[in-house]
Structure formats: structure tokens, C-alpha cells
Design a binder for these strands. Structure first.
Lengths: 299, 299
DNA sequence: CACAAAATGTAGTAAAATTACAACCAAACC
DNA sequence: GGTTTGGTTGTAATTTTACTACATTTTGTG
């Protein structure tokens, strides 16, 4: 049996779910029996009408019996006629929205803009399904109890760590963030068992980050990894918040994965606020107010 | 006639386009009776599950009688329960119910995780519609012709600028990035008419960034603003890439806006690559290869 | 507190979908 | 050429599902 890497497995699964049933009918046409093909024809001719039909009317329109229609539905891996209609309705809705169309060389600005939005959103949808709320909850637990929180990342993930700093600095916890690997190491040397070190890396194979994880653990700190499951970094972590994001490899740049990471940061920050309760929210409001002085007034 | 601010106008428009029945339920909530509201709650909580329910199970889940569910469906201008399910299925077709549900105090990890994903994706959809491909194209023009590119942002936008650095440093252009406002100023002092200064700020009302814009323009540099249209910063820019993102104000933190900004950076980078052609892509591949040495091998 | 109006539920009915089974058809084999 | 076998289709009964009419309860008002 062929083993797909997890990433691809999840990716395909998510897309299969919304794979257009109309396409499926069109492709599957050979596998149908004669009568079933009649049904297929009628549906393809006017799918919009089909979703408002009862099994009886559709049978009459196709000039077959009702059970034949039912068998037709089942052959398409649906639970039955009503379920089939649901799938059909979804296929019909708003075209094919989250299609992972890749940017092509001859695309104009409008095209690549839309494609990037679409494929990023598709990736986020996949990411969302791969996020484990229990792990999130555990992560929030750890963060709320931390004495100091460290955020480290390198390369593309550095900006994610940077963003995390920006969020958590608003809470009343000391936050540490460095871009420089030496500074990361040094600050980690002094961490304690009450500290949480959050390490961010899509691949989880960045050597110096793995080393940081080891140093932090040697000091009994809690190491939380925002990385892909099963990676060398993941193995060094007390808690892994894994994300399986289909990366657009055409571009040679991290794009969707990084945005998914940011979303996890947002989610952790939100969990943090919720855990701290309402009084704490007032605190945040004050932080925001403080910023006003550095700004021009509205209007 | 009441004039809504642009933000909200676009926001609403985007939702009207997809005649989302989920949105309709959420808004219509006042017009429902007590029992009907119970049904609404159950459906909104897990619309994906609802479409696979019979009227009986949904009634039981909502703790109301079957006819109440039926009346609920009719109130939403559907022909009955099956028709309602069809509409619901279509609304869900895009994968995300594009509903901007706000995180509530009593939400558990699963709930707030989903809500944040959903509302961010909803915001991205709105952002996507507000992006002007012509402006993007003009931006790519400027960036490809620049001798030096500067990326500056403060607060939450600092990490966006940071990310932009990470992307554009891979191309063969000198990129400047500082977090420190004094360094930003100083580096800007020496810029020339061949340079492009990209300033990032959601609000466009950060004083020191506006000043940077003025300094850059005094040196004849091109100032590109990733900010909201009509803001003080926008007024100082040669080109504004505006984004209208409905911000989740509950949280007192920039969330969706920042992600939308990142997407614009991705889009600009992509445009940049496309403009430079295929040979240039080889270049990128090399940059990526270089990173390998700092990583553990796969498997 | 009584009354009307609205909301909700109960029970019966109609419709729709599914199942079990029988008839049919076509190809393979004796 | 008839018979058997596998698959396809339809008929009729069964079950599930949705809807309707009406009774009951709740809510608001004078």
C-alpha cells in the first residue's frame, strides 16, 4: 500500500470533499448502466432543476424507475437521493470557489491576485481542519501559566514570532523575542521551568531551532512547537501545535503556511484573553488607548 | 440618506452577493420566536451537521417540535425543510460559512478556533474584493524598477514589513527594513528618486510613519502605502494599495487586517517574480537551496 | 383576572425514499 | 439451441420523512 505523506493526504481529502459531483457524474459515465446513464443525462442537462425534484419526478423525467435513480445516487458514493441532492446543490453553489489554481506565467494582475487569494483561502480551510482544539487548549493552559514567554522563529517564521510578540506583549506577561540566533540561545540559557518557549518553524527541520529546543528543555522550560508533526523539532517539544498546510511549491516561498501560523497565534492569543476573563479585557483596552497618542486623530 | 463608512458598505455588499442563508439566520434572529431561536442556535453551531439531519432529529436537538422547525424554515422564505437544507448546503458549499461570528466569553477551544478561522476567511473574502489589480500592477511596476526597496511598519504592521523583507530579500534587490523609528528615519534620509519606500499601516494614522513618508518624498523617492484609503498616510503616498478589511473590534488587536496585508505582500512578490520572467525563477530556487544547509534532511 | 393573540406541540395524513423481491435480459456454457 | 449465471431493471410493500389541522399552552393587554 502506498503511503502518502500526511500533508498530501489531508490535502486531497479536504478537496475530495468538495470535489464537484457534477464532474464526477460526467467522468463516471462509463461505469453507469444504461438506465443510470439516462438519469445522468437528465441531471447534467439541467442540474439546477434536478435539485428541486423528488425522486419520483426525476425518475419520470429520465424514464426509469425510482429505485434506479436511487441506485444511481449510491453509485456516486452518496447515502441516497436526498444526500445526492445536497451534494449537487453544493456543487452548483457559487461555481467552484476554493479551487487551488496555480499562478501561471502569463497571468495578469487580476488573475494572479485572485488566484493567490483563492489558494490561500483553500489552504486555510485545510489548515483549519488540521488544527487540534485540544492541543490549542493545552497551549493556552501553558501560556497563561507561564512566567515568561519566548517566541523564536527564523526566516519566514521570524515574522510570525515577531507578530506573536506584538500580540502577547499586550498582556501582562514578560515576552522575549529575538531574531538573532545567538541572542535566542543566550536568552534561553537562563530560562526556568516556569517559562514557555514557543518555537515556530514550518518545516521543523531548522537546525538552530532544534538546538534551542534542546537548550530550553535542559533548563526544564516547556517547549511548544508550532511546526509540522513528526519533524525533528516536533520531537523535542512538550507540546506540538501541528499544522498541515498544502504549500504552493511553485513559488519557492512560504506563503500559506505562514498565514496559517499567524492564525494559530491569533487563536492562542484569543484563548489567552478568554482564560484571563473580562477584567483583563479592560487592560487590553487601556493598551490600545495608549497607542492613540502616537496617532493622528480620526478625521 | 444614511452614509455608511466605506468599510461597512463593502462588507455588507460582499455578504449580499452570496445570498447566504446562514447570514440571514444570524441577522433575522430578532424576528424569530423563542423556539425558533433555539433552532437557529443549533443550526449556527454546526451547520455542516444540520444538513444531514432529518427534521425529526433537528427538532430533538433543538428541543422543539417538528412543526416548529418547519415554521422556522418557512420564515426564512424557503418552501419547507428540504428546501431549506438545499439553501443551507449551498451556503456551506464554499467550505466556510462566511459568517462573521464573534468570539464569545463562554466559547470553548473548538468554538473560538473555528470562529477565528471563519471570521478571518470572511474578512479575506472582503479584502479580496477591495483589492485593485491595477494598483497592484502599478506597485509591481515600481518595485521591479526600484534600486532599493524599503519596508517600514510599526506595531502589528512591523511584522508585516518584516515578512516583506523576508520575501524580497530573495530577489536581487537591496532591501532595507528597520523596526526602530530613528533607523527608519535615518535610512530614509539618504534615499533617492530611484528608491521605493513601502509603508505599512492599517489605520494610516501613525504619526511617525507619516513623517517618514514626508521625508522620503522630500528625497524624491516613490512612496507606496499599504494602508486604508483616505488616511493621512495615504495622502502622502505616490501609490496607495488600499485594503478595506472589517476588523474584529472585540479583541482590541489587529488580526484580519494584518493577514490581508500579508496577502498583498505575497501578491506583490508574485507579480515581481512573474515580471522578472523564468530565468529569475531559477535564481529563487538557488536561494532556497542555500537554506538547505541550515536544515536537517528530510527523513 | 379574563380575554385575545400568538406561539408551540400532538396526532394524524400525505408524500417521499428505500427495501425486498421478482421479472427480465444478455452473455457464457453445456 | 436451451440452460444457467450475473447483472440490470421494475413492482409493490415498507419505512422514513415532512407536512397539516387542530388542540393546548403561553404571552401580553385591558
Amino acid at each position: 500500500m502506498l503511503m502518502l505523506p500526511l500533508k498530501e493526504a489531508k490535502y486531497n481529502e479536504a478537496f475530495k470533499l468538495r470535489m464537484n459531483i457534477i464532474e464526477k457524474i460526467a467522468q463516471h459515465t462509463e461505469a453507469f448502466s444504461k438506465s443510470e446513464r439516462k438519469v445522468a443525462e437528465v441531471i447534467l442537462k439541467n442540474p439546477q432543476a434536478a435539485i428541486h425534484c423528488s425522486i419520483a419526478t426525476l425518475a419520470k423525467m429520465s424514464d426509469v424507475s425510482e429505485p434506479t435513480v436511487n441506485r444511481f445516487c449510491r453509485r456516486l458514493e452518496t447515502k441516497g437521493f436526498p444526500d445526492f441532492k445536497l451534494h449537487l446543490a453544493q456543487s452548483l453553489a457559487s461555481g467552484t470557489p476554493f479551487l487551488n489554481r496555480h499562478v501561471g506565467e502569463n497571468d495578469g494582475p487580476e488573475e494572479y491576485t485572485n488566484k493567490i487569494f483563492e489558494s490561500t483561502m483553500a489552504s486555510l480551510e485545510v489548515a483549519r481542519q488540521s488544527v487540534d482544539p485540544n492541543a490549542i487548549n493545552r497551549g493556552v493552559d501553558l501560556l497563561t501559566q507561564a512566567q515568561n514567554i519566548y517566541f523564536f522563529g527564523l526566516g519566514a517564521s521570524a515574522s510570525v514570532a515577531h507578530d506573536a510578540l506584538n500580540k502577547f506583549i499586550r498582556f501582562n506577561v514578560p515576552v522575549v523575542y529575538f531574531e538573532d540566533i545567538l541572542m535566542q540561545r543566550m536568552s534561553c540559557m537562563n530560562c526556568s521551568d516556569k517559562d514557555v518557549v514557543v518555537l515556530i518553524s514550518s518545516t521543523g527541520r531548522t537546525k538552530s531551532l532544534v538546538e534551542i529546543a534542546q537548550i530550553a528543555r535542559a533548563n526544564d522550560a516547556t517547549v511548544m512547537g508550532l511546526t509540522s508533526s513528526g519533524s525533528p523539532l516536533a520531537k523535542e517539544c512538550s507540546l506540538v501545535l501541528s499544522l498541515d498546510v498544502p504549500e504552493d511549491t511553485d513559488m519557492y516561498m512560504p506563503m500559506a503556511s505562514r498565514i496559517a501560523q499567524l492564525m494559530v497565534i491569533d487563536i492562542l492569543a484569543t484563548g489567552f484573553i478568554l482564560r484571563r476573563g473580562n477584567k483583563f479585557r479592560e487592560n487590553l483596552k487601556r493598551v490600545k488607548e495608549t497607542l492613540r497618542r502616537s496617532r493622528y486623530d480620526k478625521q
